[in-house]
Every structure is written in structure tokens, then in C-alpha cells.
Design a protein around this nucleic acid. Structure first.
Lengths: 213, 213
DNA sequence: GTCTATACCGTGATAGAC
DNA sequence: GTCTATCACGGTATAGAC
């Protein structure tokens, strides 16, 4: 009796998420997905349109709540304090990422890595959809940081935010840019709390650094 | 008369570099490469072994000199000053990247973007080869930064360097993590000098930030 | 509406003739 | 070294069953 067997579409989503996270997008074939999900090959194109669109669906299912969490934290912080510090603003972004990475039911740490990596890599799959959907996210953070860092012009602030989110996403992506060179001797700890502990001082210092000259 | 027509292998390398840079690795097929290079399809596998190996060759041809330039700058700096500043150390890395990105004959800005992106993405193609070949690079910079930042333990220093190189590679990759959200309103300037001008203060501040507590 | 079987064309790789 | 032929596998499209 397969009473509570999920939707075909849901089963595809679940299996696809797992395989994308474990093996990457390119390395995962539709035939692997449909076989493991026990559905027909054509079901993917029927329900999602294409492999690209499937990836987008997998992605959105997790990203939307994450963004919502960040904005909620931001609201909460701004309701509490008139002038939130840069560090507390940074934390409204980091905390939800951390929470997501500790929740296996929502993909866990592996999904945060997929998410970050995909954003960092600027995947063609996401450019249009995401940018339209989540411009609120950037607008809200831009406004918040503008108040916290009034000495910067809009352009300087945009650069700072760009760099800051770059480091943070990269840290969560767990790619260890230097590990390519370092081999195994260093930074083996994948513990997200450890990442944050070292990450926050770096990001905050970079954000508040005075413009030279 | 095709007197100075380059090697088959060289022609493949040149065309492949151009196409990889313009369209990305996955989007570039061997058939496109061999057709444009006017060589037979099988020539790629004969000369390079596989598409993956071809990418690696394309990559190494530019990376090796770049790394050499960085180390040369580092040598020069350390010969001149007993205790180089963090900023001057950072610049020994940034200057060669900048120079490469302005040299069309070596792939130019587009190649720097490909290079950075590939490192940031931690491509499977590079993990083994690169890490073995360029561990010197990391060792030299680690030693240099250890002298410039003696207050940090090895672990803290590794994190800082990891973050620092993350931002720098990302900046050169030109991915604009935030651009995904920002759309066009911001940071449109692709001028490498502009990047550096804003990048350096951020990175240096992050590197030298005191450990909290 | 949902699912299935199957065919199509492009991909990277390879064996063997020259 | 080079080329042709061929392979297995990839994503996709469609006709038709339920």
C-alpha cells in the first residue's frame, strides 16, 4: 500500500534536489532522476518543461523561505533598534543561512552549499527569474546598510555590499578557494558555526573600512 | 601557402580558449572547436586525451605565468622591505591579475574572469593538478602574511586568507553576486582598475581586523 | 489531465584504416 | 598524425494509452 506516496512532481523534486546536491547539475541526468523517483522519463518535461526549469524549481523551493527569513529578521531588528549596527545587519543574513544549513529536512548544509555555489557561479538558470523575484531583498538590505553606513555614497556602498555578500556566499559554498592549493593541511572544519565565527569579523571590518584618501 | 600556420595542437588551444571564455565550458562542444580550428574532431582526443584535459591545458597555459608573476612580485617586495605591509602583499597578487586582464594576447579580461570563475567554482577539472602544482604559491603567501600579521595563529590566518582570496577571485570573476538581484542599476563599471580601487580597502580591512574577544 | 513508450538529434569518446 | 565510422549517452519532443 503506497497510501501517502507523494505527487509525481514532488518525488521528482525531492530526488532531483538530492542528486543535484550530491553530484552537481551537469553530472545528474534526467534518466538517473526519473529512475530513482520511479517515474517515467517524460514526466520531467511534462511537469517542469526542461531540466533547466526543474533545477529552478528545486532551487526556488528552498530559496524563497530563506529570503523570507532574512527579511523577517531584518524587520524584527529594525523594529527593535533605531540604528542597527553593521554586525547585527550581517547577522540577519547569516542566521537564516545557518539555520537552513542545520535543517536536514530542507536540504541541510549540502543545500546551502548548492545554493551559495549557484549564486556565486551566477548560473544562467537563475539570472532572469531570481533577479526579478528578489529585488526586494537587495533593496531592503541596501536601505538598511545606507542608514548604518551613511558616510558612503550609493556607489561605494554597492561595492561594499557586493564584496560582503561574495565572501559570505563563498564561505557557505564551502569551496575553499585556497584549498585548491592548500591540499588538506588547513581549514578542514566544515562546521558552519566555525565558519561564521571567523567570517563575521572579516566581513564587518571590510564593510566599515574608511575610504582611503 | 600556410607557412606559419601553427601546430594542430596550438590551433586547438587557441580556439578552445576563445570559445571557453566566450561561452563557457559546457556550452562549447568539441565539434565547434575542431570546426573553427579547421582540424579533425578526433584530433582533440589524440592531442589532449579528452575535453576535460583540453580545458586543463588551456587553463595552465595562462595560470602558470600568472602565478610566476605573483611570486616574482613577492620576491621583489621582500627584497626591498623587511616587513611588507598587508596592503603591499595584497597588491603583489592584484597587480599581475590586473596586468593579465589588460593583455589581449594572453586572453585579456575575459580570461581572468574565466580563471577566477573556475577557481571559485572549484571545478573538478582542476582539483588534483592545480593543487599539486601550485602549493608553493600558497606556502609563500602564507609565510608572508604570517610575518605581516603575527598576532594570528595559523588557523585564524588560514581563514583570513581564504576569505581574502575568495573576494578577490570573485571580484575578478566579475560575477556580481548582487547583480543577480540588483539588475542593472548598480556596479556596471567593469573597469578592472575600478574594481581594485574599491576592492583593496575591503580586503585589507578584513585581513587586519582584530579577533573579537 | 496524467502518464508511457519511443524516436530524434547532438554530445564526447574510440577503434581501426591510411 | 590524421581521418572515417561508429558507439553509448545526453536532453527533448511527440504520439497515443489511460
Amino acid at each position: 500500500m503506497e497510501a501517502n506516496r507523494p505527487d509525481t512532481a514532488t518525488r521528482i523534486l525531492d530526488v532531483a534536489e538530492q542528486l543535484f546536491v550530491e553530484q552537481g547539475f551537469e553530472a545528474t541526468s534526467l534518466r538517473m532522476i526519473t529512475q530513482q523517483a520511479e517515474v517515467n522519463l517524460a514526466a520531467v518535461n511534462y511537469h517542469f518543461g526542461s531540466k533547466d526549469a526543474l533545477f529552478e524549481s528545486v532551487f526556488q523551493r528552498r530559496l524563497a523561505p530563506l529570503i523570507a527569513s532574512c527579511l523577517a529578521e531584518l524587520d524584527q531588528l529594525e523594529a527593535k533598534e533605531e540604528h542597527p549596527s553593521v554586525e547585527s545587519l550581517v547577522m540577519t543574513f547569516i542566521r537564516p543561512c545557518l539555520a537552513l544549513s542545520k535543517d536536514p529536512a530542507r536540504g541541510g548544509a549540502l543545500f546551502v552549499r548548492l545554493l551559495s555555489r549557484t549564486l556565486v557561479e551566477n548560473h544562467r538558470l537563475l539570472r532572469e527569474t531570481i533577479s526579478q523575484q528578489y529585488s526586494v531583498f537587495v533593496q531592503r538590505y541596501t536601505r538598511a546598510f545606507r542608514h548604518a553606513l551613511p558616510e558612503f555614497g550609493v556607489e561605494e556602498l554597492a561595492w561594499r555590499m557586493h564584496f560582503a555578500f561574495s565572501v559570505m556566499f563563498n564561505a557557505f559554498a564551502g569551496n575553499d578557494v585556497l584549498k585548491i592549493f592548500f591540499r588538506s593541511q588547513i581549514v578542514t572544519a566544515r562546521d558552519p558555526d566555525m565558519i561564521v565565527k571567523h567570517l563575521v569579523p572579516f566581513v564587518v571590518a571590510g564593510l566599515v573600512a574608511p575610504v582611503p584618501g
